[in-house]
Design a protein around this nucleic acid. Structure first.
Length: 520
RNA sequence: GGCCCGUUCGUCUAGUGGUCAGGACGCCUGGUUCUCAACCAGGCAAUAGGGGUUCGACUCCCCUACGGGUCACCA
């Protein structure tokens, strides 16, 4: 039997970075063994605008290139594809109800008429007695027939009858053997009491188990927070007469030693906001995107990260190939991934290392590939129009080429292209001051402009020669002229090679800009 | 608090009784260099603590500490 894994997010409106890693492990496992990877939407709770909340998740998976073999349709319209559809739990409640009723008929489940007040009281009492509270409901020992009858008359939550005094044992593929006593497992709620529409919706654990069995999931790989309710779910599998799947609980992702969650994440820093604005984002657009923070996939996409870099980083966070390799091509990861090399301890999300991985993947791209993916950022920032003419394209190609490894994120293109593409220069005050601090700087720059005037052809190689000759004649270092010239023609103190910069600008603009700078 | 899980450089990790405890990010120093980036060479830096077991423990066992998860008609 081929393996079937799954990822089952609840539609929150964004794709969480931790979720992606869990999904990735499932995906690698399935792809590595010729199995299937299934996407299921766990929307048993509130049915808030589903389609809209699902879309960011679908989009995220598509961007990352993580394909699913069964699950929601990729237009995020609420349809599903695959032999067990639908793959939205919100659309599968009939199955859960039927399964619960069957369990009740078999005497394995029962309606619980305990009131919340009674439960609270019992809980409090147990607390006072310093004993754990393990909930067992009212009708545990009532006959199935009687229970069915009472339930028809008045619907309340349905609970699974847990048999005390037994052990539940399973071998977790990352954490090893786990066993717990059923004495510590409460009778879990399977179905809720009817909601306003009279529908008794399933609870997470029950819907999950019913679906896992129905879909034929063989390996459940999920976050560690689900470890403790695994025994409960195994009990449900057994009650259903189904074989439990294999389990693997992967550690959580932390940030600064704490679980990375949207709630306690800092809002976008001024720097990040500045970067987005430079990318052409308006204040309103930024405010309207509450899915933009470092815990979401969208954040990395919008900043110009490479999906393969994010994936590589995430794979290495909590898993290793051999302790040596950091850059692991996807095909290698697919071939080599295994749960037994997943770490047990939680890992901290390290933005700096992600950034480094990103840089490594950028080095692999050709100038053409880089340019293609930079273009959307240039368009958004309105540095170029919607259609790219051949001349601008040629200039951009030269810029990307000259920039080399300096473009770490695709959005970085803006910093290198803007000074060249824009007609009016914005002088960075600090760079300007530094460049012209020396009293002779301006007169030297004027002399250099004269030398440049004679450069023919005005290409990088010639300019380079002129530049070196110019400083050599005067017994100076290149630095004497480098910064003043750079600031004069670009307004900023950093950039790619000066001769490239001058050549791309062309003689006329260079001379004009120098002349303008001299008047400052 | 009960139950469960975890703990190797600042961070990600290798390691399964005998290693100078390895690699990577970051950081620092030097080199190269027209700025920046890149590149090259080097450096700093870890087995949470305490008991056992053993000729020998990072590795096995126990305790402590710390961190985390979970205890819902959330997922």
């Amino acid at each position: 039997m081929s393996i079937r894994t799954r990822f089952a997010p609840s539609p929150t409106g964004y794709l969480h970075i931790g979720g992606v890693r869990t999904a990735l492990f499932n995906w690698l496992l399935a792809r590595g063994q010729g199995g299937q990877f299934i996407l299921r939407i766990d929307d048993t709770d509130d049915s808030r605008n589903r389609a809209e909340a699902v879309k960011p998740i679908i989009d995220g998976f598509k961007w990352l290139g993580m394909t699913w073999d069964e699950g929601p349709a990729d237009d995020a319209g609420g349809d599903s594809f695959g032999p067990h559809k639908p793959y939205f739990q919100g659309q599968r409640n009939g199955k859960y109800e039927a399964a619960a009723m069957k369990l009740m008929a078999e005497g394995k489940a029962y309606p619980d008429y305990t009131t919340p007040e009674q439960q609270d009281a019992a809980r409090k009492q147990a607390e006072l007695a310093r004993k754990p509270y393990v909930h067992r409901g009212s009708n545990r020992d009532v006959s199935p027939e009687e229970n069915l009858q009472q339930y028809q008359a008045r619907k309340v939550p349905i609970l699974l009858k847990v048999i005390p005094g037994q052990k539940v044992t399973f071998t977790d593929h990352v954490r090893g053997r786990i066993d717990v006593s059923t004495d510590t497992i409460r009778d879990p709620a399977l179905l809720r009491a009817p909601d306003a529409k009279g529908i008794c919706r399933a609870l997470y654990s029950f819907a999950t188990v019913v679906d896992e069995a129905d879909f034929g999931i063989t390996h459940v790989v999920r976050a560690e927070e689900h470890l403790t309710n695994t025994p409960t779910q195994i009990l449900i599998f057994q009650a259903l007469g189904a074989t439990p799947p294999e389990f693997g609980h992967v550690p959580l992702i932390y940030r600064n030693g704490k679980k990375i969650s949207k709630r306690d994440l800092p809002p976008l820093s001024p720097e990040e906001i500045g970067k987005l604005k430079a990318c052409g984002w308006t204040e309103e657009e930024i405010k309207g995107r509450d899915d933009l923070n470092l815990a979401t996939v969208a954040y990395y996409r919008e900043l110009g990260y490479l999906p393969e870099a994010l994936i590589n980083y995430l794979i290495r966070l909590g898993w290793s190939l051999d302790g040596e390799q950091e850059i692991i091509p996807l095909d290698v990861a697919i071939k080599k991934f295994s749960l037994d090399r997943v770490t047990k301890a939680p890992g901290n999300f390290d933005m700096q290392k992600l950034f480094w991985v990103q840089g490594e993947y950028m080095k692999l791209l050709s100038t053409e590939e880089k340019l293609e993916r930079c273009i959307p950022f240039l368009t958004k920032a309105k540095l170029i129009g919607d259609v790219l003419d051949a001349k601008t394209r040629a200039i951009l190609t030269t810029i990307v080429d000259a920039s080399g490894d300096r473009i770490k994120l695709f959005s970085d293109i803006l910093a290198y292209a803007a000074p060249i593409l824009k007609d009016d220069i914005e002088y960075d005050p600090k760079a300007r001051e530094k460049a012209f601090k020396d009293a002779n700087a301006k007169s030297l720059l004027a002399e250099f402009a004269e030398a440049l005037k004679a450069a023919e052809p005005f290409d990088a190689a010639t300019i380079d020669k002129v530049m070196h000759q110019f400083v050599a004649d005067r017994g100076l270092k290149l630095n004497a002229i480098q910064l003043p010239t750079r600031v004069a023609v670009t307004g900023v103190g950093v950039g790619f090679g000066l001769s490239d910069t001058l050549a791309i600008l062309g003689k006329e603009r260079v001379l004009n800009r120098v002349a303008a700078a001299l008047k400052l």
